[in-house]
Design a protein around this nucleic acid. Structure first.
Lengths: 239, 239
DNA sequence: CTTTCTGCTTGATTTGAATCACAGCAATCC
DNA sequence: GGATTGCTGTGATTCAAATCAAGCAGAAAG
């Protein structure tokens, strides 16, 4: 199946074109790999991966977004990631026989592409470019995690909240004359878990930022960032 | 130069044999790659990498240990890693043109092996096995970081200290009839930075653990872990 | 051997976030 | 439309770790 201009109708080629991982490949190779890929859809709230499960595939998000999280021994959801279109995950487990150490849940309707363990191995062996790209992506992710580490180590909660807001602004924000409008992908509770702080504390911080004119809360799912400069200062000048 | 049984005297082959990264290679390939590797020695306190520098090589530690750290905007050392024999780092920067975002300093006399950007690319192209191994190692590192995330997100400082002690016990500890004797690679201040807590707090926690009979402080650089079971409970049953 | 310095401990106080408690609002269900 | 349920915001309180402040011990220097 050859891709026409509108990939939305070419399910095989769809995700592969979007994924930076395969961007270095020729059209011919793309089509070849596309044939190996399986597709699956999930509804909001569906579990894609559960802790302790054996992972057999690399998963690439084609449409929608998911959260990755764990439970603390006390049973609270904790420190999750958000993955959205073009992101991939599950690669850690494809080369070891470890079980998944986190859960992944759909935040909305989600379409994914899967490449199984053996197929990925084959691809990596025959296309070193893909391997290098994958290494590079993993490197980026590590660098990003190191950044997150830094902000985590900082006790200053204001800085963490500011960082999250700016992150969201760049990922989910849309520019408007008044500032950046963010459509929040997760609830306040979710954000608090993400930051490792109490729900109430997040509320208070957001209220404070609003009092200071840095943001404006449109409704529970929508936020306007009015002064990203000051937020940036807060995020950086921590400690 | 072919490796004899005692690799210590065969500088070219030395690190390559130790590094899991290259373990899948044939002796022939090993020798070939060994020829590309450069060696360097550092004294305690020497800087291997400075923030903002361009990284041109993958660095593999052959002997000794180093710490990786950043400075907070306020100028405090923060949240470092410890790398020792067989560990490698710097790979994130070899595929992007990013500058180093952390500093690396020798904690003792250190011998390293370096493989430059272009040489590594060449190796990865010609030896897909090495690429896959590298991907797998990076995956492991990510998994490990995710674990660290979890313990970081936990407010319970006791748990974090306990985790660190157990980590050190397995990395630097030696069994003795009374328990595991740890020769600490870093100062109290270093450990506190590592954990993201105040130096004083660490002191107090260690004193508390000692009162409870879990550990015994031999001298400032030596620690005896007497009850790793209870420490494990503390580390796990946090929050 | 004494002095000095550096890193460590211990105590007192402060601070900032967690927790507890409850009220308001929104969404869903009947 | 009204009721149940699940989020959210705010105030009061508690608590744990940071900070401030001495004091101590071991190492290096004179």
């Amino acid at each position: 199946m050859k891709c026409s201009q509108d990939c939305r109708h070419c399910f095989r080629g769809l995700c592969i074109h979007r994924v930076p991982l395969f961007s270095s490949l020729s059209e011919e190779n793309l089509v070849q790999i596309a044939g190996l890929i399986q597709h699956k859809n999930y509804e909001k709230g569906d579990r894609l991966i559960s802790e302790g499960t054996t992972m057999e595939s690399l998963i690439i998000i084609n449409e929608g977004s998911v959260k990755a999280f764990r439970y603390t021994p006390a049973g609270r959801e904790q420190r999750s990631y958000l993955f959205s279109e073009g992101d991939f995950f599950g690669e850690q487990y494809l080369f070891s026989d470890l079980k998944a150490t986190y859960n992944v849940e759909a935040l909305e309707a989600v379409k994914i592409c899967m490449l199984t363990k053996t197929q990925l191995h084959k691809v990596l062996h025959t296309h070193p470019d893909v391997a290098i790209k994958l290494i590079s992506e993993l490197g980026k992710r590590i660098a990003q995690m190191e950044n997150t580490f830094q902000s985590l180590g900082i006790r200053n909660v204001d800085a963490r909240v500011a960082t999250l807001l700016l992150d969201f602004a760049s990922k989910y924000g849309e520019e408007s004359p008044e500032g950046t409008v963010i459509t929040l992908p997760i609830s306040r509770e979710g954000m608090a878990n993400f930051l490792g702080i109490a729900r109430e504390t997040l509320s208070r911080k957001l209220s404070k930022f609003e009092d200071e004119g840095l943001i404006r809360s449109i409704d529970l799912k929508t936020l306007l960032v009015r002064d990203s400069g000051t937020l940036g200062d807060l995020a950086g000048l921590s400690d």
